[in-house]
């Protein structure tokens, strides 16, 4: 049976908390107690092994995901690591923004692909009575130019992004779940340029001169708030009102 004082000294030594006097006392106790010596050796080996445990690198995109989730406007749910606990907390965090947790990631096959001529045609061919109040917002910010606009399509609304940026710009659109449904997008662009979405949330990254059209199936209608972020900074925001009815064909 090892004396409690000896145990205390052993543990203190393991933690590097012994002064010279205590160290001498411990040594005397160890000299007189083989069981204590064995215990000390075991605990020292355990501490050494714990100290050798490898440092594990966090996922490369962890920082970006956290920064996206703390966005000052959108505070949206990161899409690529959507898992229960994080979803639960982020939902609470973003309650005011009304983001549902059942995310859907749209892959490359998600929308009706249109050629460039069709896209130009639909933007130019606005008609109908349900006209959006503020159809186009011009974007002028450091490293971002272009426009985002809402136009009528074939029984649905089209959110059209014409963007030019040398560096990656994160585009995030948030809206009330019931305002509309994203039915697809064009062009199909797998990989980094792909559009990802969850109810109430659409995201993609723009780099270079690109046009994207998002096809919106009318719902209750309401504003869609769009933020453009580059290099960790908010470059510009835009708000477009999506009507609660389909455009006339």
């Amino acid at each position: 049976m090892i004396e409690q004082r000896t145990l205390d000294l052993i543990n203190a030594e393991i933690d590097g908390e012994l002064d010279v006097g205590d160290l001498a006392e411990l040594q005397a106790r160890l000299d007189a107690d083989p069981e204590a010596r064995a215990m000390r050796e075991q605990l020292a080996r355990i501490a050494g092994s714990l100290g050798r445990m490898a440092t594990v690198a966090p996922p490369a995109d962890l920082q970006q995901q956290i920064l996206q989730a703390t966005h000052p406007v959108a505070r949206v749910l990161p899409l690529r690591n959507r898992r229960t606990q994080f979803v639960r907390y982020t939902m609470a965090l973003a309650a005011g923004v009304a983001i549902a947790a059942v995310g859907v990631q749209f892959s490359g096959s998600s929308g009706p692909a249109l050629d460039a001529g069709q896209l130009v045609g639909t933007i130019g061919g606005q008609s109908g009575t349900a006209e959006p109040a503020n159809a186009t917002v011009v974007l002028r910010a450091p490293d971002l130019e272009g426009s985002v606009g809402l136009s009528p399509g074939d029984g649905r609304w089209q959110l059209v992004f014409d963007l030019a940026s040398e560096r990656p710009v994160n585009v995030t659109a948030t809206y009330a779940d019931a305002a509309f449904r994203l039915k697809g997008y064009a062009p199909d662009e797998p990989g980094a340029g792909a559009v990802t979405a969850a109810p109430g949330l659409i995201e993609f990254v723009n780099q270079g001169t690109q046009r994207r059209v998002l096809f919106l199936e009318p719902g209750a209608g309401g504003p869609v708030r769009i933020s453009f972020e580059g290099q960790g900074k908010l470059l510009q925001e835009a708000v477009l009102d999506v009507p609660g009815q389909a455009p006339e064909k």
Binding site: V56, P58, I66, T70, P78, N81, F86, Y89
Partner: peptide
């Protein structure tokens, strides 16, 4: 993020759970 992730990883022995914990911890702090 790295020390927090590593602490979580050693407590949980699960990389994805540790990632979740790290994310949640920073979001709560924010």
């Amino acid at each position: 993020q790295r020390p927090i992730f590593n602490a979580a990883y050693r407590i949980l022995n699960h990389r994805e759970d540790a990632t979740d914990v790290t994310q949640t911890a920073f979001l709560r702090a924010y």
